[in-house]
Each structure stands twice: as C-alpha cells, then as structure tokens.
Design a protein around this nucleic acid. Structure first.
Lengths: 236, 236
DNA sequence: CGATTGCCGACTGTCGACAGTTTTAACGCT
DNA sequence: AGCGTTAAAACTGTCGACAGTCGGCAATCG
C-alpha cells in the first residue's frame, strides 16, 4: 500500500511523478492534513514536494476526477467538502452498485470467489480485533472490492473504485467511533450466506441491510461530530 | 492525421484551453477522425491546435478519466478501443444505474419531472423522424440523463455522465443502422407509463427491456460491421 | 540469409519563466 | 475611525526548452 506518512518534503525521486504526487495528496487529504474546503497552492505544493508545477497540476486534475478536489477556474484547487446530501448520495450510489454486483455474483459464485471472500472476511475480522482503525476500513473496502471483482464486470468495478475515493473521504473523517468487531463479523457473514444461498432476493436484502448499517454509522457520525451540512461547494 | 474541419489551426483562442482541447478531442474521437487504438502525438496536436503541450496533456488526462483515452507510460495516449466484453460491461453498468434511478424516480415522480420527460420524448421523436442520426442519439441520451437528474442523486448522475462518454464511443461507432422511429417512440413511452404507474417492478421491467434493446442493437452492430473483439488494450 | 547490436530520430516527462488575473494590503479621503 | 481606492504580491494559465527514454532502422556478425 501507500508508503506515505511523515516526510512531506522531497521523498519523491524516481518515476511517475504525477502518480506519486496524486498518492501523496490523497493520503494527505484523507488524513486531514488538508482540511475540507482548504485551498491548495500549486507553487506551495511543488515547492514542498520538490517538483515542478506541471506534475502537480496533472495530479490535481486526477484527484478532481476522483472527486477529492474541486477546481475553480482562475482560483485553484480546493479540497472537496461533502455536505449531508452528497453523503447520502454517495451511499445511495454505493447501494446501487453493490446490489447489482452481489446479484451478478450470486449467478456465478465459484468456489474460488467463495474462498477469497471468506479469507478476506477473516483478515478483516483480525484487523477489527486488533483495533486498527484505518486498516479495518481498508480491509472492509477490500472485501467489497473483491465482491465487485468477482462479479465479473470490469466497468462496474471501476465505478466502485471511483466511488471508493469519496467513501474514504467521508468514512475516515468520521470513524473515530468504532464499530464492534462482532458486529462487523456477523454483518459480513450474512453476505456470504446470502451468496451461498444463491437467492437474488436474499442477496439484495443482505446488502441493503449491510450498507444501511454503514450509512447510518456515517450519517450519525456527521450529526455528532463535525457538521459539513452548510454550503461548502455550491459554486462549481 | 488530416484535420477534417474547416479551420484546423488556431480556432482555439481565449480561455479554458484545457476544456476546449478536451471538447475538440472528444468530438474528433466520436466522429472517428482518430481511429480506435491510434496513438496521439502531443506535439502534433499542440502544433495543429496552436497551443502548447501542457493544456493538451491535461486535456488528455481528462479524457483518460472519462475512458476515451488510455495512457501508456512513456508511450503516450491512445484512443480507447472497446472489445466485446467491455461493451457488455458498459451496458450492464448502464442497466445497473438506470434501474436504480428509475425506481428512485418512481418514488418522487413530480408533475414537473413528468412534463420534462414527456417533452424530451417529443423532441427525441422529432429528431428520429428527421432522420438526424447524431442528434437522435444525443436526444436519447438526454432523455435518460433527465431521468437520472430527476431521480435526485447528483452522484448517481455523475456516474451516468462518466459512462455516457463511453456509451457515445460505442454507439456512434456502430449506429449506421437506424432504429425505426416508431420503435423509439413506443420504447420510451413504455418508460413513462411505468413511471406513472408508480410500480417499482413495472419500472424495472420497462428499463430492462429498454436497455436490452439498445444493447442488442449495439452488439449486433459490432457483429455485423467492425470487429474490435481482438485484444486491443490488454496491457494495463 | 537471418539474427543481433548499435545508432538515430521522435517523443514523453519535467522544468523554469512570462503574462494576466485575483487577492491582499496599504493608503488616502471623508 | 470607517470606507473606498489603488498598488503590490501571489497565484494560475500557458509557453518553450531540455533531458531521458523508446522504437525503428541499418550495419555487422554468425
């Protein structure tokens, strides 16, 4: 995964500057080194990272297409801030994609897929037990990504990956509140059971419940902690 | 690469060079001035358009995120070529998004939405009757975009817009074969009726049928005319 | 005659610089 | 002291240039 962390200065050296800058920015945004709505200065960034502005700009465009940044012409790039409505929309789209995926997957549920998913749930549970917050989130997302992967539609997977960036954005902001490890375990086992049953309805019910839980968690978190419901990025 | 349009040079002038270049490239790709798999030279493009390479590169990145171009490191940008599997995936994702959208829309089907959709069908039918191929496609897409819009999920709409670029890519490639105007009309009226009925199942059935038609048309078109099923973009 | 290796051209990745615009800050006026 | 005006600073958009790299061609060797 990402070998990011402390050093903000000049740890970029070799190749694919654009991708490296993009990774750096992504990590920095998720870890809230840049606050939502904050303006990013190209010169500042290029100075800090020891690269020129061209790769920074291209990386910023990439992040914009992923919904992490927003560009205002002649004004620069700003860190995306999600309000309550947008947050609902993200989870609604996630539901849309995963419903479709799990039903497609149920149609072609190979032993290989079954094994991979079970193993991933195992990994996830261990991360949850270890109380490692960020890793728990990543392993959780990875489980769902695997579902999408084995559903056999590359384009669907890409749409999910696009959405994932925004998901990370809102999840990480909030989840100081930890879900109970046993809740996570049972919640995912239900999905596996539904898949094994092969019933589309059971799958749909399971995924609806599962994502509903996650959404409520995030929405509740927003209500409790920080409030981004005000107008943050209306101008587009 | 012959620039077909009248003024190949310096018809780009003032502001937002990136967006203008992106539009130009999009049009050129859709109208097949660049063939699938063709390599785009940055210097050539910047020379032809009378701009420097920086905006060209940024525009290319944008098109890449929209799935119209593919970048191979150190090799440049190539026009996306869709094989049969990817084409199936695109329509499967479209089905996924529109199913969700039409059911959400059925829950909140305002008179305003109804009126707008009916009017758009009207426009569409006129375009079909006038035998204007490209405009028919655009109006058709616009109808579906309106559906997504009134479904009330901005993020869902964005996902659809992202997909639309690829849809245009494969639709335009193929639709020399015209659908009969009356088929188009009835096909869309069915959607309106299902929406008015308010029944989720009716909506789902209608959209499944509708998109199935479109998909079969494209798949059949691929089988008849050009065949892109060979390995075109396996790398990466 | 075919395969290999070295060379040449073209192109991408990246950089520093310039011009126009936006934001900030100081300044003068009331 | 408050407010409008203006000048300076900072920043974005764009450009041309340089270096490293990749692909193709040709000359050489087996």
């Amino acid at each position: 995964m990402a070998l990011s962390t402390t050093a903000p200065k000049a740890f970029i050296q070799q190749q694919n500057l654009v991708e490296q800058v993009a990774d750096y920015l992504t990590q920095a945004i998720i870890q809230q080194h840049f606050l939502p709505g904050e303006r990013l200065s190209e010169v500042q960034l290029s100075r800090d990272l020891g690269v020129s502005r061209a790769p920074v700009r291209e990386a910023a465009r990439l992040l914009e297409s992923r919904g992490l940044l927003i560009s205002k012409p002649r004004r620069g790039f700003f860190v995306r801030a999600l309000n309550a409505v947008e947050l609902e929309d993200v989870f609604d789209l996630r539901l849309c994609l995963e419903r479709h995926a799990i039903q497609r997957l149920a149609e072609c549920y190979t032993p290989e897929a079954k094994r991979a998913l079970e193993q991933q749930v195992d990994v996830l549970c261990k991360a949850a037990a270890a109380n490692d917050g960020t890793r728990r989130i990543e392993e959780d997302l990875q489980f769902h990504r695997l579902m999408l992967h084995y559903a056999g539609n590359e384009r669907l997977l890409r749409a999910f990956d696009d959405l994932t960036h925004e998901l990370r954005l809102c999840i990480t902001l909030i989840t100081k509140t930890h879900e109970a490890p046993e809740t996570i375990a049972t919640s995912h086992f239900q999905l596996l059971e539904a898949l094994s049953s092969g019933s589309p309805d059971a799958c749909r019910e399971a995924i609806d419940y599962h994502i509903g839980i996650a959404r409520d968690f995030v929405v509740k978190g927003v209500g409790e902690t920080g409030e981004h419901a005000d107008e943050d990025l209306f101008s587009r």
